[in-house]
Simulated scan of single mutants.
Amino acid sequence: MRAALFLALALFAAPAAAQDTARAAEAAADRLAAASEQLAAAQASRDRVAALTETVRAYEAGLASLRDGLRRAAIRERSIAVELEARRDRIAALLAALQSISQTPAPVLMLHPGGALGTARAGLIASEVTPALQAEAQALRADLQEAADLAALQQSAIGTLEEGLAGAQTARSALSKAISDRTDLPRRFTENPVATALLLASTDTLDAFASGLARTIDAELSGSAPDATARKGEIPLPVQGQVLRGFGAADAAGVARPGLVIATAPRGLVSTPVAATLRFRGELLDYGNVAILEPAAGVLVILAGLAEVFGETGEILPEGAAVGLMGGDPPASHEILTETAQGGGAPQTETLYLEVREGDVPVDPATWFATG
């Protein structure tokens, strides 16, 4: 009996810390519901492009928030399971001891072979241990209930995920169409398509192409050139993601490029962080689809690796305007649940290359962008 009581005192040394993941997941679901309402309103908005751009951002934020909540829920559920597994032998030993005690008649249980003094001491120990046993039993019950709630939360998220993913795809498609129908943006110049084609055919480096861009202008218009010089060093990155390689860093093949490589989620929205002139859009050398922006006179921002590029060359894009979408296929809801069940975050399988040139010379993008 004494061995069982001291084993009970040692059991469950530290209670598990509870995490309010359900509230985070509920907030994410609310954000997705708001994005769905925003999508319906954007279809009738006077400025459909701006409204749909914000809707795509809202869906991306809501889905990212939901995935983060599910990931934390999965990590917590696994943590509880590991803790309970680690205690399994000790719990089994305690239960066996308690079962043996429960089968002993109460008058015999309270007797001690040491006589009255031993019996009194055993009673004192039992009176002190009982509240501790009750507290630990409640903690165990809370852990089991939390694990069950977290499992139910992840299961119930399937519908929310599917609706969010479908809504995001609808918003992206509507945005692409709205931009293709747009005719109200000011233009700084009109492009000479023949000169552009000749430049593409005659250059084999990005340096040469960027240097020859001026020759592709057919006629200058009255639009005033944007100037983001005052925000130099504080401009946000054009896409949500993580910088994989910095300025001049070599890749796995030993190739160093004077720009940033940013990992992004599939179909991520790329936008202009400041007002800029669209100087070029299309396929370029081995860079894939490219958009070249001019946020200030003599400054070019090259964005390469997009799946879709929006806008017309010569247009002045306002701050926050959609430039394009990254490639890849967004994961299905069951794939997301599998990833989060393993404790993983949102996969960033696409890469955007960002280069900044001042007067035909590449400079560190960190001089213009807030890369941190």
Rank of each mutant, 00 (worst) to 15 (best):
G159Q: 13
E162M: 08
G164N: 08
G164R: 07
Q169W: 09
Q169C: 03
A171I: 02
R172A: 07
S173H: 12
A174W: 05
A174Q: 12
A174Y: 09
L175I: 00
L175F: 03
A178E: 12
I179L: 12
S180G: 09
R182I: 05
D184Q: 02
R187A: 14
R188P: 07
F189D: 10
T190G: 14
P193F: 05
P193L: 03
T196Q: 13
T196V: 07
A197F: 02
A197D: 15
L198N: 09
A201C: 01
A201I: 00
A201V: 01
D204V: 00
D207I: 00
D207H: 11
F209M: 10
L213Y: 06
R215Q: 14
R215V: 04
I217F: 03
I217L: 06
E220N: 05
E220V: 03
S222W: 08
G223N: 01
A225P: 09
A225F: 08
D227Q: 01
T229S: 12
T229G: 03
R231S: 15
G233M: 06
G233Q: 08
E234F: 02
E234Y: 04
I235E: 10
I235L: 07
P236D: 15
V239F: 00
G241V: 01
V243W: 02
V243G: 04
R245N: 14
F247D: 12
A249P: 03
A252N: 14
G254W: 13
G254L: 13
L260Q: 11
I262W: 01
T264R: 01
T264W: 03
P266W: 04
P266N: 08
R267Q: 15
G268I: 00
V270W: 01
T272Q: 03
V274D: 12
